[in-house]
Design a protein around this nucleic acid. Sequence first.
DNA 1: GAGTTTTGATGTCTGCACACATCGGTGTCA
DNA 2: TGACACCGATGTGTGCAGACATCAAAACTC
Lengths: 243, 243
Amino acid sequence: MSTSLHHRAIENLGTRIINGELPAGHVMLAEQLEGELQVSRSVIREAVRVLQSLGLVETIKRVGIRVLPVNRWNPFDQQVIRWRLSSEGRGTQLRSLAELRSAVEPAAAELAALNAPESLRRELVDAAHAMRDAGHAGDVPRFLELDITFHSLLLSGSGNEMFANLMGQVAETLTGRTMHGLMPDHPHEAALQWHVDLAEAVSAGDAQAAREASARIMGRTMSRMSETWVDQPRVFIPVRRNS
Amino acid sequence: MSTSLHHRAIENLGTRIINGELPAGHVMLAEQLEGELQVSRSVIREAVRVLQSLGLVETIKRVGIRVLPVNRWNPFDQQVIRWRLSSEGRGTQLRSLAELRSAVEPAAAELAALNAPESLRRELVDAAHAMRDAGHAGDVPRFLELDITFHSLLLSGSGNEMFANLMGQVAETLTGRTMHGLMPDHPHEAALQWHVDLAEAVSAGDAQAAREASARIMGRTMSRMSETWVDQPRVFIPVRRNS
DNA sequence: GAGTTTTGATGTCTGCACACATCGGTGTCA
DNA sequence: TGACACCGATGTGTGCAGACATCAAAACTC
């Protein structure tokens, strides 16, 4: 057993809550969980505290541990995203991530063109050229790897820590896209060129051109992916007044 | 004492880590923290587990509890953001949030125009008109409140749970802006009209116009706020290869 | 220097006392 | 008789104290 009991307890409860096996409003007792997971109270308590900080449960004295509804989950937490991507909510999660990416990347491109350090600009250009080569050669695994590197570099180069933190999620969407068979053997020729254009615009410090190239890439990505989630219902989270 | 020991321990350690009193690499012992905060081991352990899930610390056997560097902190966590806003990192945090907002809101406006439920569109129009009235009347507190409501409605109306989750952070930036004395007594007339334009574009389902109106608003907001963070250094988070 | 032992920190388990929200019973008043 | 306010029993999370297990760094041996 490489993972700790603590980690396993979080994983067990987290996945069961997010895949709907433990629905919102469901109440559990710490003692009951002890027996169910065959671990001690301290492990349960520490796990519940973490799940509480993720917005998955709340603890109420005299009642127990209550599962919270989706709109209370922290949608930016890596673990929550990972759990949702391997559950029924997969489609909705992928759409949310794609929409976020398509909003953020053009802004990141602009910032990268203005602020990125010289070495990163060079890496970006190299990655774009390597992507084009891999695309022409039909080397899909390498193309995917370079694609992730390219977009990670772009987000990192923005100098915005929040943008940079989306690197992990972007990797998930890109690999998820190939899993869904959305990637053709030979990537779109124009898209390959747009990546080169973007890298060179960033390298040259042309913020406007960088934003536009990124917007083109994301526009195409969105139109290709949107086919998969046309039937995903949208959830509107109520505005929390007062406070 | 209304707050639990658990909560207070998290608050204490979280703020001290983020304001730099406990620098990255600093190692603490659970036993030592017990004495320092005058709480039992279970409280410390549960607090550390939560901080661990936020990326603030890591626990290493035989060593102790080590404080992690900034680039490991979860920049999207509400608590982390709140702690940073009341620390030296305030400027950087505000800039990150503003850049994120300015990237996301035009996209949210577009989605809201396409997907928002009818009642929300009406609320948005009402809020925009009320904002204009409050602005003309010079009622700054009410204007701020309506401003927050307006942008929250927009994000909520996008139907994207991640966008909607930024409501809280947006409220922080807007109130933070007034704290910094960045708001004139009488808001810019054109900006007031842009809010009305945006609301009516969303109401009419005109995605293109909604995006453009939002982009205008955010463009002005960014140019006004950017004066305050010209001297904030940018941090480039390295791309994590392999995995 | 490679392998082994020791050591010291977190990880896990358990029993107990306390705080306090909920529920049901009791008493009062109309 | 019925409605309502009060109050104590009950159960569950919260916090505490102490023990043993585990495992990796550090010290030691050869």
